[in-house]
Design a protein around this nucleic acid. Structure first.
Lengths: 356, 356
DNA sequence: CTGAAAGCGCTTACAG
DNA sequence: CTGAAAGCGCTTACAG
């Protein structure tokens, strides 16, 4: 033992408290230790711990001092047992997660949600739903009241969890506008339709004539991006210029670009519904010997990290993911407190780089 | 009348309706409900819940049935209060996390750890340590016994958490060999030195004469990769061919490559200590008009997702991250159970693609 | 094998 | 404003 790290503990001989610390396990100070040291009842200590209402200044001071010198930390289990609140929130990925983990957006979301929650002293519990067993576990976990709410990152329609969440029994907020049975869940999303319009208008303003789109209409946000593209192009948005992919991956982008190139060889611009898709398209264009943006302009969506690492760097639509995360947490906390809270739509922004 | 809280509430002059809202929350069945239905004591129910030892077949059956029909789930708080186990583990990122979140390896690690833990019904709590406030929160959280152990992803030397972890009071396992004060923490890592040798040997076998290295010796693993490179090259590994970066990022890779190119214009191969670094180097090489691999061969390290998305795809050293994660969880669980467990080193593998 | 009972460490009406 | 007391839902010796 190098140097006394916890003076309060070290000074304390074990005989006094109840339980007599039979185990060598960490036996932190309890609320009773604090109460004794402060010369008050444990009810009073509890009151200062929970907002210091109805506590005299003298008692408040004594308790605060005692908390500091004992190094007391509340035992969450004991507290939860009576309050029925866990001070934890589940971050649920209900899609085959490999796909989502590949998405740079996901990391930003996870990081920002964790940070926002930490400010409220709430823990983020990461839960994956890739197998049926996992799905079952998450359901039991959420139903069992182990968490106060859930941040739903991407919903799979068949998921039984959806029903619970949509019913409002367990507070929840989705990332991106949900479709199908989960439509009743409040959400936070970027203005996908308008963002897509911004990009399409930009491409048109650049003088591009045959503007293709790599869409991904599996999710509502993707449908809206396609809609925005059509809004601007009108009847010029011919079917042969649109390829719908099954996911937002790099590989899907490359495959879609290949298809576009073979179906419409004279294409001179392409709007990809995500940066990852755009990166894949870029790779395919290079393989085909097309110069970007000279021969074909490429526009992405997200402004994720990858947009700065492609060659050339991507012109894209910025989605304010940090704010999406912060707002998701804000909405969820309101819901947990039974305060009114509704879905939020965040504005997007055109970011000019070199690809278009 | 059990459900008559409406009447009770109406009759009572309570200033805050908060209590009422809380009471209306989900009230699942308790162990007593199960016991009653099964016709046994709650001690017996508890026994079947915890391994079914010393329980008669008849009682076992009755309890299992009762659990099923009531839909009973154990209340973790109540259980933790007595067992002192939380069934949760913290996944701590103790570096400025933006940097790590940028790393594709990180996602793999996080996903695989979550999955491995879920199989044991243990939750993963994600904790970031970017600000002092957060650092403090993590420390209190871990010391407060809120988690049974910690998965330490990257340790910052000044972190007070390290002392707790290194002392073994709280079970912990690090990802990658730790250096400095945390050296006492068990770890799981790839065989960095040997992996670097494999790559360097490959470059030599390709006939490359002036092989540079983009190193990152901030972490022990990075030092070992540099060592492996030197092991193979001997005195041919001249100082001017090695650039040490401050992190594993794309931008750092590009900057390092620029420096190598200006200091040693005749360089014909470069071994980057990570794929992200290699991707940055690739971008810089293209900017400088050098062809890869014709003019300059590029080797990476990790075999992360990005290795397949660069142009050309990266020849790299595969690090078995899925196994690293699985082993980290395995070691941690053993430590938690007070079983003997020691650090593990996992083999690497050369993956041939087009960049070298 | 099983039940009764003693807590685990907290919060929260309730009555001063 | 404050203390005494009644739980919250579980586990675990301890006696049968």
């Amino acid at each position: 033992m190098t140097g006394g790290n916890d003076t309060a503990d070290a000074a304390q001989p074990h005989p006094k408290s109840r339980g007599a610390a039979r185990r060598a396990m960490r036996r932190g100070p309890t609320i009773d230790d604090v109460a004794e040291l402060a010369g008050v009842s444990r009810g009073t200590v509890s009151r200062v711990l929970n907002g210091a209402r109805y506590v005299s200044p003298a008692a408040l001071k004594a308790v605060e001092r005692a908390v500091r010198t004992t190094g007391y930390t509340v035992n969450q289990s004991a507290r939860s047992l009576v309050t029925k609140q866990s001070n934890a929130v589940a971050f649920v990925l209900s899609e085959p997660q490999e796909r989502l983990f590949e998405d740079p957006n996901f990391s930003v979301l996870l990081r920002c949600c964790t940070q926002a929650l930490a400010e409220h002293d709430i823990s983020l519990i990461l839960m994956l739903e890739s197998s049926d067993a996992e799905r079952d576990r998450v359901l039991r976990y959420v139903r069992g009241g182990h968490v106060d709410g859930v941040l739903l990152i991407s919903a799979h329609s068949g998921d039984p969890l959806i029903a619970d969440l949509a019913s409002g029994v367990v507070p929840a907020v989705a990332c991106g506008k949900p479709g199908g049975p989960e439509a009743a869940i409040p959400y936070v999303a970027a203005e996908d339709t308008e963002g897509a319009r911004q990009m399409t208008r930009h491409l048109v303003a650049q003088g591009r004539k045959r503007i293709g789109m790599i869409a991904c209409t599996q999710v509502v946000g993707g449908q809206e991006r396609l809609q925005g593209y059509r809004d601007v192009l009108g009847r010029k948005a011919r079917g042969r210029l649109v390829v719908d992919t099954s996911d937002y991956s790099f590989a899907a982008g490359a495959a879609a670009m290949r298809e576009l190139l073979s179906v419409s060889p004279d294409i001179d611009a392409v709007f990809a519904a995500s940066d990852l898709l755009a990166a894949g398209a870029l790779a395919e264009l290079r393989r085909a010997g097309r110069r970007v943006p000279d021969d074909v302009a490429v526009g992405g969506f997200d402004d994720s990290r990858i947009a700065r690492e492609t060659d050339p760097p991507l012109t894209t639509i910025r989605q304010p993911l940090e704010r999406v995360a912060a707002d998701m947490v804000d909405v969820l906390l309101r819901l947990i407190r039974r305060e009114p809270a509704s879905s939020r739509l965040l504005p997007t922004e055109l970011v000019l780089r070199e690809s278009a």
